[in-house]
Computed example of a mutant assay.
Amino acid sequence: MTNAGEAFEEACRRLKLAGIAEARLEARVMIGNALGVDGTVVLGRPAADISAGEKDRLKAIVERRVRREPLALILGNREFWSLSFRVTEDTLIPRPDSETIIEAALAWASERNDVADILDLGTGSGCLLLSLLYELKNARGLGVDISAAALKVAAENARALGLDDRARFAKGNWGDGLRESFDMIVINPPYIPEGDIAGLAPEVSLFEPRLALSGGADGLDCYRAVIPWLPRLLKSSGRVFIEAGKGQFPAVADLLEKHGLRPVDFIKDLSGIERCVTASGE
């Protein structure tokens, strides 16, 4: 019979051979998932035997990961803003970079008491909208996505977080068909140039939905599509928070200005990249 320590080391070995950068960290998460307990607890008792069923579950997880399937998809969830979000092959996996939008939006909201209506265009898993609603207890929000499968995941996340009474979701193409106006609009559009996708890590290029990745030839197609809707959807006192890829913020700011919005700030993520462009209608 195999013990926990041996199973962990074997998982680490296979992950390292597959080129997984954080092999030991991921192996700890995997063994915890396979045994149904926290991985740290398991490794605190390395001599403890694991059952054949637990060994098989761990082996299945490792097999998928060495094929470079993202761990979040294997486990079915990803933490974002300290909340757990269900993710599937139909949704973009939330990234820490996108928490820059949450930080900026909450900082702005803290200076006012009237943020009641939030719009999330291209909501995916719902991580942006639901994280904001979790913090802004008096707000309600609408998440829009062109993918019905993604909207189903977002609605499940809202229920799991107890936010389904304040969050609703609708299938749509950016702002098309919307008749409301909003205090806050958050957007994380696809912005990777189409020609760059094949060169990304296989976890991204092979497993995440292209619909949520590709921004066309120059990465700006979705900005060109969504920004023209914003002046009508944003209340005069409202604010837009839109994520941008590396080096894209000048082009995004130009598009915002072209359509009558005033860029206010460019906020850097933890890597020093201008990740969030904010704009107002005033």
Rank of each mutant, 00 (worst) to 15 (best):
R68Q: 06
T2N: 05
G32C: 07
D183V: 06
H259V: 07
A48N: 06
F8P: 03
S131A: 12
L255E: 10
N77M: 04
F266W: 13
G122M: 03
L211P: 05
A72T: 09
T123R: 02
R95G: 06
S51L: 05
T88H: 03
A34D: 06
A72E: 15
A154E: 10
W229F: 15
P263Y: 08
A60D: 03
P263K: 04
I187M: 13
Y223Q: 08
G247C: 03
V252M: 07
R28P: 05
L211A: 15
S82T: 14
A150I: 02
L73K: 10
E194T: 15
D254C: 05
I197P: 08
P46Y: 09
A217K: 14
P202L: 01
D176S: 13
I242Y: 00
L200I: 08
A253S: 15
H259W: 15
D117T: 04
L128W: 06
V252S: 05
M30C: 14
A201S: 10
G141E: 10
I118L: 08
D218S: 09
R275Y: 04
P228M: 12
F207T: 04
P94R: 07
R112Y: 01
I267K: 13
L163P: 10
F85L: 14
A18V: 07
E69C: 09
A253M: 12
A47E: 15
S214K: 10
E26S: 05
A72R: 04
A105S: 15
V144A: 08
A104S: 15
F266E: 11
A158E: 10
V153K: 00
P96L: 03
E63Y: 00
G126E: 03
F8M: 10
L15R: 14
P189A: 11
A48T: 08
R14K: 14
E282V: 12
D165E: 15
F249R: 13
V41H: 01
A148D: 15
S82N: 15
F207C: 00
C12F: 04
I146H: 04
R232N: 12
K59A: 11
G39S: 02
L234C: 02
V277I: 14
D176G: 12
A251V: 03
V62S: 01
L17W: 01
N157R: 06
S205W: 05
R179L: 01
P46K: 09
P231I: 05
L270G: 02
V226F: 12
A11R: 04
L220V: 03
D114T: 03
R68V: 04
G19V: 01
I20Y: 03
T2K: 10
I227Y: 06
K137D: 09
D196M: 14
D164Q: 14
R28T: 14
I227W: 05
V204P: 04
T91L: 02
L129V: 11
L119D: 03
L83I: 05
D269Q: 07
A11E: 06
N77T: 14
A155W: 12
G175L: 07
L71I: 13
M184W: 07
I227N: 06
P202D: 02
V240M: 01
T88E: 05
A139V: 06
E282T: 11
P46Q: 10
R57G: 00
E103A: 14
D269Y: 02
A154M: 13
P190E: 06
L234A: 04
G76F: 11
